[in-house]
Amino acid sequence: MAGAGPGAGGTQARGREPLNFAEFVRQAMHSAADQVEPCADGLVSIRARILAGSGVPWPQALALSVYWLGPKRKA
């Protein structure tokens, strides 16, 4: 997906070879976003909240979700 999109054109990316501006933006955003690492237990929270939304008391919803999917959420 080399960038030929809006704003395309040469630019000097600080000490590197000139890049297509769109490609430069793409690379910068990917490299910044790659540093974001979500917690491993997102599915536990989602599952527990779905159960809780269907009327299951929160402690049971969480216990069951942890039982299936672990790991235990750290405070």
Partner: peptide
């Protein structure tokens, strides 16, 4: 209940 479930499976949830 919550305590039992989590303690029972502590080893799995490290």
């Amino acid at each position: 209940l919550y305590q039992q479930v989590t303690e029972l499976h502590e080893a799995r949830f490290r």
